[in-house]
């Protein structure tokens, strides 16, 4: 049985990087289109929505963050992996905050990028399949003041509604389903991102950081706790 090659969109302003990635990803079994700037990327998405996007953050004019924001604003929830040529943490995470799913710092290993893209694509297909069935109506997860309505995909802390990106929401759901259970980073990578292989990334920590910031915005006591050396756990109180 031959599946059709997943359709990838590679966005980078550097012609050499674009050419290399196009070739490398094509040889890894993807159908690759490319764009050299933000408007070009949005045009390509408008033509045909790709299965995943590999997006350079440092685009001239409309930068990668703006592209991610625009994609999410248009309700495209394709997996987006951003590429950053800067190594400061702030720059790493801005794309994720706007709704990207993962990031890699240039120069990266092509095999790593391929593995993550495949995992994100599998994961995306599965959650799409799940969402057609949908959770049982009225299924609600609560931990302390936190309330997740899985049917409506809404999150409340007390009376306050919390707006989460797709990946933040999925991470919170996994943590809430396993409330009081400590989950390792590896387990979370597998459950939320579908990364069932060893990979060197702190993307879990970054997303936990986002969750905390949003959940604790009005001074709510910490819900997502770090268990030093082990991982993370959702529970009320220390």
């Amino acid at each position: 049985m031959t599946e059709p090659s997943p359709d990838l969109l590679v966005v980078d302003d550097d012609a050499d990087v674009r050419a290399s990635l196009e070739r490398g990803l094509r040889l890894s079994g993807f159908a690759v289109r490319s764009a050299q700037d933000g408007p070009g990327a949005l045009r390509a998405v408008h033509e045909r929505v790709p299965d995943a996007v590999v997006l350079d953050l440092g685009l001239p004019g409309m930068d990668g963050v703006a592209v991610v924001s625009a994609l999410r604003a248009m309700d495209h929830d394709v997996p987006v992996c951003v590429l950053s040529a800067r190594d400061t943490v702030d720059d790493r995470v801005v794309g994720l905050e706007a709704g990207a799913d993962d990031y890699m710092v240039k120069p990266f290993a092509l095999t790593e990028l391929v593995a993550r893209l495949r995992a994100l694509l599998r994961r995306g297909a599965r959650s799409a399949a799940e969402s057609t069935v949908g959770p049982a109506l009225g299924e609600v997860l609560t931990t302390g003041p936190l309330r997740l309505d899985l049917a409506r995909r809404t999150v409340h802390v007390g009376e306050r509604s919390v707006d989460l990106t797709k990946r933040e929401y999925e991470l919170l759901v996994v943590l809430a389903r396993n409330a009081e259970v400590v989950l390792t980073r590896e387990r979370l990578l597998e459950m939320v991102w579908g990364y069932d292989f060893a990979t060197d990334t702190n993307v879990v920590d970054v997303f936990v950081g986002y969750l905390r910031r949003k959940l604790e915005a009005d001074g709510t006591p910490r819900l997502v706790h770090t268990v030093r050396g082990v991982g993370f756990v959702l529970r009320e109180g220390g």
């Binding site: 290399s20 040529a85 092509l110």
Partner: peptide, 14 residues
């Protein structure tokens, strides 16, 4: 420097 190195690494892996 990271930009050409990215292209180089990808090409070498290919």
């Amino acid at each position: 420097l990271r930009t050409p190195l990215t292209a180089m690494r990808t090409d070498l892996e290919v």
